[in-house]
Amino acid sequence: MKKVLIATQNAGKVREFDAFFAKKGIQVTSLLDVEEPDDVVEDGVTFEDNAIKKAEAIGKSLGIPVIADDSGLEVDALDGAPGVYSARYAGSEKNDEANNQKLLAELESVPEEERTARFVCALAVYLPGNQCHVVRGTCEGQIAMELQGENGFGYDPLFYVPKLGKMMAELSRDEKNEISHRANALKKLASEWDSLLS
C-alpha cells in the first residue's frame, strides 16, 4: 500500500496520522483533498459504529483504502457523556469553546477526585474487498476546573493527564503523539498492520 485516505477534514487529525504513516512510507491524503466528498451521517451508538460507517461509505465510493476514526470524550460523572456527541455537545455547529464551556457547567458541582474521564478513539480500516477492521485506543485523565494550554484542539485545554502532570493542551505535538487516544489506537493498528495487509 502506497497511499491511504484519512476520512476527515480536520487538519489536526491529518497531521497525527501523517506522523504515523510517514514511518511506513505511506502517503496520507484526506477529505480535504477530495472534491465534494460524501457527507456520511454519523448516527451510530458507539464510536466503532461511526468509524465503520464512515470508512465503508467513503472507501466504497472512491474504491481505495480508507481509515476513518471516531473519537470523543467520556466523563464518568456524566455517565459517559458527551461520548459520540463530543464534537456537537453544545449544538449542531462544531464549536470547541462552546463545548468546553458546557462541560464545565455540567461538572460545576463535581469535586476534583470525581472528574475522571478518558479520550476514546475507534479506528476503522477499510481495504477494498475486505471487512472493516477496528481498533480502539484510550487515554485516561480527568477534567480540570478551568481551561489551560494553547496546543491541540477540542477538549484538550480541559483534559489533565496525571502521569505527565500536564493538560493535554500543554503537551508538544511529539508528547501528545506518544500518549493520546489516537496514538494508542495507532500503536494497536501498527502491531496488526502487516497481518491486516496480508
Rank of each mutant, 00 (worst) to 15 (best):
E16A: 08
Y155D: 00
Q142W: 15
I52R: 14
H181A: 09
A117M: 10
D174V: 12
V75D: 03
G129E: 03
D43Q: 10
L196Y: 14
A7L: 02
V45N: 14
G12T: 05
Y89F: 15
D39L: 13
E114I: 08
A183S: 10
E140I: 00
N184L: 01
R173Q: 12
V120D: 13
A81Q: 13
A122Q: 09
C139H: 09
W193G: 11
K54G: 06
A19N: 02
F119A: 09
G141I: 00
V41S: 12
L171Y: 01
A183E: 01
D69Y: 07
V125F: 11
K23I: 02
V66S: 06
D96W: 07
E114C: 13
T29D: 06
A11C: 10
R118F: 07
Q142A: 09
F20A: 00
I67K: 02
Y160R: 00
P157D: 07
A124K: 13
I26K: 00
V34N: 08
K188N: 10
P128M: 03
Q142E: 13
S180C: 06
E146S: 13
E56I: 11
N130K: 15
E74D: 07
G137H: 07
E170A: 02
I26T: 01
I64F: 05
L73G: 06
V4M: 07
K187D: 10
D49N: 11
I179L: 08
L127P: 07
D69T: 07
E97C: 11
A22I: 08
V134I: 13
L196W: 14
E146H: 15
I58A: 05
K24A: 03
G12Y: 12
F47W: 12
G25V: 04
A169N: 09
V84G: 05
N184D: 03
S198T: 14
E114R: 15
R88A: 05
G152C: 04
P128F: 05
P37L: 01
L104A: 07
I26N: 00
E56Y: 10
L186T: 08
